[in-house]
Design a binder for these strands. Structure first.
Lengths: 120, 120
DNA sequence: TTATCATATGAACAGATAATCATATAAGAA
DNA sequence: TTCTTATATGATTATCTGTTCATATGATAA
């Protein structure tokens, strides 16, 4: 006997329905879930991660980031655009040069948490 | 005039070289950086994120996760394999059924940090 | 103006990846 | 044994994504 809203599936204990209800309650809404995975997706690329680490040390212009990481200016610009649209970095122009920096300290906190997990 | 190890690039302040040195010091080694981006990469997919949220509530078998999320058993199995190889979830077999659960509480901490950033 | 430098961006391509399908494995029931 | 259920997995495919290249924009200098 299955609870009415379940498809044919493996049988479980009496508390099965309670668990399913608990899951549905705790699941974030679709928008939040999208934004959350999008945020982590941004962190899930080594070029972007290295850019962020550079910016942990100091605000920096595009060509310096490129030179420092050994990546073309174009690639860096493309990635900075993503980072900026995710509001992880911000920029200011000074003449021909554009300086990028972290949007807020939250960024480092999240990455440090991940680092702790990795370094266990 | 540029510092010797720099390629032709935009001119900077006197502290330029100090900043570059600081960046190099703070940058994690290649292995750590790889593991870190790999970790976030795992979080950067909505199916995997939803699986993790399901497991926040309770340990659960594969077909229940599939039914709950409306995703095929095969897709869930494939993603669980990734999650397990990243040591984010663990499994135990009970007869024909395999139950998955979170590998440790660290996982939820990292995701909660991301959630805070997203919900600002 | 033209020339140069710093950055941004569109297009194209190569590599990665998530889902699907078919099938294999593993365990229990008949 | 055979049948069924639960899960795992290899192959295929469609989509996504990061880089490169060429070029455009924006700012300064001559």
């Amino acid at each position: 006997m299955h609870p009415p809203e379940r498809a044919a599936c493996c049988d479980q204990t009496d508390t099965h329905q309670d668990i399913l209800d608990a899951v549905r309650l705790k699941m974030p809404d679709e928008d939040t879930l999208y934004n959350l995975t999008e945020l982590f997706h941004i962190f899930g690329d080594s070029t972007r991660m290295r850019i962020l680490y550079v910016l942990f040390a100091s605000e920096m212009c595009v060509c310096d980031i490129a030179a420092l990481l050994g990546i073309t200016q174009s690639a860096i610009s493309h990635q900075l655009r993503l980072l900026k649209s995710a509001r992880l970095v911000k920029s200011r122009r000074e003449g021909k040069t554009v300086f990028y920096s972290l949007a807020d300290d939250h960024v480092k906190t999240i990455i440090d948490q991940g680092l702790e997990h990795v370094q266990e």
